Computed example of a mutant assay.
Amino acid sequence: MVRRLVELGAARSPRVLAAFRSVPRHLATPGLSMAKAYDAEYAAVTKTDAEGVDISSVSAPRIQALQIEQAGIQPGMRVLEIGSGGVNAAYLAELVGERGHVVTMDIDRDVTRRAEDFLTATGHRNVTVLTADGELGTPDRAPYDRIVVTVQAADVPPAWVHQLKQGGRLVVPLRMRGMTRTVALVRDGERLVSDGLELCGFVPMQGAGENRVRLAVLHDTEGEEIALRLDGHPEPDPEALRAALHAPRAEAWSGVTLAGDESNEHLDLWLTTALDNLPLMAAKPAARQRGLVASASPIGVPTLVEGDSFAYRTVRRTEDPDRFELGAVGHGPQGKAVAQRLVEEIRTWDRSHRGHHAHIEIHPAGTPDDQLPAGRVIDRPHTRVTISWP
């Protein structure tokens, strides 16, 4: 597992590698094989809700390592983990050492009970496990040098900012217009400023901070479902878009290529920065196999919606077997024009932003526009999140 984490670039520092070598993570998932428990990419779901939504898991080692590297944890620090489970808390405990302390909390008593059992079995005594809503943090134990959030959050509640030391780091899987990135944020007064982000996936937050995406279903045949994931986007006309889906498709191609192992995560974040109505289209693999869509992803593909038409990002092979051309597939009366508009922004990214990372800032709700960086503004109940580009 540790060798694979190094190959993936998820774990880099000797202390993080040592922590991952020392924790017997299989004790947290007794029903799993050893191979699965130590698979760098495998997240073990431990609880689902009545609707079948995953609400608790032991995150994949790759994601845990990415977040821990982002946090930059040093011996003697006080760390708050929001979203428990035990394994990640053990890694954090290894890193802070005997002079440091970790508080791990979760709203679900089943989850914290498992964490307690795991930490007892592993002998990590410098961890306190609490059952409470992470939205409020733990004011009586603050301030913290680091706060690590292991559930998807759509907002940053004031408690997380106020319980973090000035200059301290908050690492959070932040959902921004449907797209989740684990963002490392440094406290600077009342604002948080990004210092790195990584693509990730986490179970949604519960409690006062719960803010789940909504679905607009475009195709509901069992096993072939296609839907738009809405996260503050304008309400679509599902009937018109369902009709568009089954109409002939139009294609537009950008001339911009990606290497076979090159991620499109920064491109997708640029697209949601530049375009107003860009939900994610999630589709089952069978929908692609039937030819209903050219791209399918459980996370979702950026999809530009304009009235009764839409277009989504896709790729096609080139003469070079290791390069793929970016383009768009459009559906509906204006499908061709919408696809071309999406392609224009792909070209803008390639021309002006490729190789750069987005800059994220989080300001308190009510901050005037003229005090925010230029770029996309996402308004949440507690904060104003900004995405800007160099």
Rank of each mutant, 00 (worst) to 15 (best):
A184C: 13
E81Y: 11
F202Q: 06
A28W: 03
P24E: 02
A121H: 13
S254Q: 07
A18F: 08
R341L: 04
R288H: 08
R141T: 14
D145G: 06
T367K: 09
L66N: 14
A286C: 08
M205F: 09
T112Y: 03
V186N: 10
R354K: 05
D322K: 10
R25I: 02
P157V: 03
D370M: 05
G178K: 06
A40D: 02
R380K: 05
V53M: 09
D261H: 07
V315I: 15
V161R: 15
D350G: 04
R21K: 14
Q64N: 02
Q340L: 14
P381V: 07
R25Q: 02
M281V: 11
R113F: 00
G330M: 08
R214T: 09
T131H: 07
E251I: 05
K284Q: 15
V213M: 13
G134Y: 01
A240Y: 08
W160H: 12
V53H: 11
R187A: 13
G232D: 13
R316I: 08
A311M: 13
G300K: 01
G134C: 10
H356M: 15
V79T: 04
A287Y: 12
L271F: 03
A121D: 10
V217Y: 03
T150H: 02
T48G: 04
G167T: 13
P24Y: 02
L278F: 02
T138N: 09
V53R: 15
E94T: 05
W270Q: 04
A311K: 05
H246I: 07
